[in-house]
């Protein structure tokens, strides 16, 4: 066992740029290093593509070559600590924020936050929406003390840049990106409508506060009181219903 441990340690050292592991050989020993590089390249390529599947817009914005370089650095600093590849890559936004050469793209970490939230929403647990007539019944009976339970995929991102609008501009037939004089902080709702459709919607900061409070367990009246200026309760309900995001309702301790 001790020797297999040593073998694995040396092999992984070689994969991350160290020398070809001791004991590795081939029928033409002068070619051993070239052959070892197949493994090194497979690992680097496989992980880099896995990251790109989470972050297609980041890759588009920086270009594939720059992205591969960033991925190599990210792999070195934050290698996968899970056998589930789709769960690796969650620190990419922080990593991008710490990467000084990207400081002229200040919105890039926020784009990565959106894309990670979209991946999580894609895999989130299923939950059937409450039927509108049931919701109405609850609302009439309970009034503003109503507790709402949102779809498990629901995430509210408070971003310091207009990354939601920039993300949208990178989609097929997307709108133009915001002009520099329209730059402002944005609140973005990421969630999944039904089984398949991941949504990314720029919402008002007040709606964002309202939803965030609902998710933390506030009832509708409490969340409403925290939403602040410019909050439109009807518009917030319309957004939730349109995207099938209300999956339960009731009093605080009797969820339906």
């Amino acid at each position: 066992m001790r020797s297999h441990r040593k073998f694995a340690r040396n092999f992984l050292g070689g994969i991350s740029g160290g020398p070809v592991p001791e004991g590795a050989t081939s029928t033409a020993p002068s070619e051993t290093e070239h052959r070892f590089r197949v493994y090194r390249n497979n690992v680097a390529h496989g992980l880099s593509r896995a990251l790109a599947r989470h972050y297609p817009v980041v890759e588009r914005l920086v270009g594939p070559e720059c992205f591969a370089g960033l991925a190599a650095l990210y792999i070195e600093r934050h290698p996968p600590r899970t056998p589930i590849l789709t769960e690796w890559g969650g620190r990419f936004a922080l990593f991008l924020a710490e990467t000084e050469t990207l400081s002229d793209l200040p919105y890039l970490p926020d784009i990565a936050r959106i894309e990670w939230a979209r991946s999580r929403a894609y895999h989130a647990q299923d939950a059937a929406p409450l039927r509108p007539e049931d919701l109405r019944r609850f609302a009439e009976r309970i009034g503003e003390g109503l507790q709402l339970y949102l779809h498990p995929s629901t995430q509210i991102l408070q971003l310091a840049t207009p990354a939601g609008s920039i993300w949208a501009s990178q989609q097929p037939d997307g709108p133009r990106p915001p002009a520099p004089d329209q730059w402002c902080a944005e609140t973005v709702l990421v969630a999944r409508r039904g089984i398949a459709h991941v949504i990314t919607v720029v919402i008002t900061p007040a709606t964002g506060r309202f939803l965030a409070h609902l998710m933390e367990g506030a009832n509708v009246a409490e969340a409403h009181s925290h939403a602040g200026d410019g909050f439109d309760l009807n518009a917030a309900f319309a957004l939730l219903l349109e995207n099938a995001l209300i999956v339960g309702a009731g009093h605080r301790e009797d969820q339906t």
């Binding site: 092999f11 992984l12 996968p80 600590r81 056998p83 590849l85």
Partner: peptide, 22 residues
């Protein structure tokens, strides 16, 4: 094949020596 050591996963199918130990 093997893919991980010390809590790090390479997500590739890596080769190993064929011995009594392995």
């Amino acid at each position: 094949a093997w893919a991980s050591h010390n809590g790090i996963w390479m997500h590739d199918l890596l080769p190993l020596p064929y011995t009594r130990e392995t």
